[in-house]
Simulated assay, not measured.
Amino acid sequence: MPLLAQMGAWGRRFTPVTRELSIRAQLLEEGGPEMWEAFMAELRSLHLGAAPPRSVIAELTEAYLAALAE
């Protein structure tokens, strides 16, 4: 996850992107290691069938939908 977050941050800076397609990368970049750990825990729980304590997927989806509405 840390590598994917950094790749998304690089893409936002050095390629032409729209707000709605870059908002999730922005949130992952700004969320830093705390968010990355929560996201990895959530992905593990999805694969193992347990409920995560925090839903980063829901946060990223909400931000994407808000950016689309702008």
Score class of each variant (00 low, 15 high):
Val56Cys: 03
Gln26Gly: 05
Gln6Val: 00
Pro16Leu: 09
Met35Pro: 00
Ala50Arg: 12
Arg12Trp: 06
Thr61Asn: 09
Gln6Phe: 00
Met35Leu: 15
Leu21Gly: 13
Arg12Glu: 11
Ala38Gln: 15
Arg12Pro: 01
Arg19Asp: 14
Glu37Gln: 14
Ile23Met: 11
Glu30Asp: 15
Arg12Asp: 10
Glu34Trp: 03
Gly31Tyr: 01
Pro16Met: 07
Trp36Leu: 13
Pro53Asp: 14
Leu60Glu: 00
Glu29Leu: 07
Arg44Thr: 09
His47Trp: 02
Met40Phe: 04
Gln26Thr: 08
Ala9Cys: 07
Ala58Tyr: 04
Ala67Cys: 01
Met1Asn: 08
Leu3Trp: 08
Arg12Phe: 04
Met7Ile: 13
Pro2Lys: 06
Met7Arg: 13
Arg24Thr: 14
Glu59Tyr: 05
Val56Ser: 00
Gly32Tyr: 07
Phe39Tyr: 15
Glu34Tyr: 02
Pro16Tyr: 05
Pro52Asn: 07
Gln6Lys: 06
Met1Ile: 08
Leu65Asn: 14
Ala41Leu: 10
Met1Tyr: 09
Ala5Met: 06
Leu3Val: 12
Leu46Lys: 05
Ala41Gly: 01
Gly31Val: 01
Leu3Cys: 08
Arg44Cys: 02
Leu48Arg: 12
Met1Leu: 13
Glu34Asn: 03
Met7Leu: 15
Leu68Gln: 11
Arg44Gln: 09
Gly49Ile: 03
Ala41Asn: 04
Pro33Trp: 05
Ile23Lys: 04
Glu37Val: 07
Val17Phe: 07
Ile57Glu: 06
Trp10Asp: 11
Tyr64Leu: 12
Leu48Asp: 11
His47Glu: 13
Gly49Tyr: 05
Ser45Glu: 06
Tyr64Arg: 14
Arg44Asn: 07
Glu59Asp: 15
Met35Gly: 00
Trp36His: 15
Pro53His: 07
Gly11Val: 11
Glu42Gly: 03
Glu42Thr: 05
Gly8Lys: 05
Leu28Gly: 01
Gly31Gln: 01
Ala41Val: 08
Leu27Gly: 04
Arg24Ala: 15
Ala69Glu: 15
Pro2Cys: 03
Ala9Ile: 01
Pro16Ser: 11
Gln26Glu: 12
Thr18Gln: 11
Ala50Leu: 07
Glu30Gln: 13
Leu60Gly: 02
Ser45Asp: 14
Val56Phe: 02
Glu59Trp: 08
